[in-house]
Design a binder for these strands. Structure first.
Lengths: 117, 117
DNA sequence: TTCATATTCAACAGTTCAGTTGAATAAGGA
DNA sequence: TCCTTATTCAACTGAACTGTTGAATATGAA
């Protein structure tokens, strides 16, 4: 009956990762292509170490992956995790919407009956 | 240049709100129709006060609204905020995907040229 | 080897967060 | 009025989070 904990944990991590404006800007930047830690840190007024940890949070959430290029550790967007989030959200948006449509139908029917009587 | 803070704050609040399994289960429950605090608290092993605060977090994030029915404060899903989240995510998913398609094209072209030479 | 660059690790401080319990408030019902 | 139900507020605790600075590690260049 309960949602499987691993799924829950992954959603926890992914939603929490995106709950920070710095990390969202990093994701936005990565959508246009991979970048190194230094490049990602450049627009921010915080230390590189702080950005490095933000990237680790994103990596732990499965939202980005890393490769190696000499001393650099380029960061790449991992769109699958983003897909899991929209999928979760849209599931319940859809249920809610369908329920609304059903209520509309019931309402329409009762109004129809009222007019008939 | 910077994203407008109010938007940022709303995304912060909404993503953070969904980063908790209790709150996600509340949203899931509400997708099937409104419910009172007591009803929402029933499946959980935590105090009603804790659930009441979870609901306040969701309300502050714009994900739910409340009405009044005697002593009860029924909670309703507010699908617009959910829409804002999928919209943010899909924006960058799309950018990433388009960039990939563009890279594929370039690759296909260069392979084509190689064959020609 | 020595120096420079890129990145991470470790320890610390301040803040926020989820949970608890106990008291307060709001609205009805007897 | 008194009692019950539904919900929230307040104060407290322990855990988690974000940022800092300084040291460590990894790789390449001279």
């Amino acid at each position: 009956m309960a949602a499987s904990p691993p799924d829950d944990d992954r959603l926890d991590a992914a939603f929490a990762a995106l709950a920070d404006p710095v990390r969202r800007r990093i994701v936005a930047r990565l959508s246009t292509g991979p970048a190194t830690v230094n490049e990602l840190a450049e627009p921010f007024a915080i230390s590189i170490q702080a950005v490095s940890r933000h990237i680790q949070v994103l990596e732990h959430a499965g939202l980005v992956t890393r490769s190696r290029d000499a001393q650099r550790r380029p960061v790449h967007l991992a769109p699958t995790a983003l897909e899991a989030l929209t999928s979760w959200i849209d599931t319940y948006r859809l249920i809610h919407e369908q329920r609304f449509r059903a209520l509309d139908d019931i309402l329409a029917t009762s109004i129809h009956k009222e007019k008939e009587s």
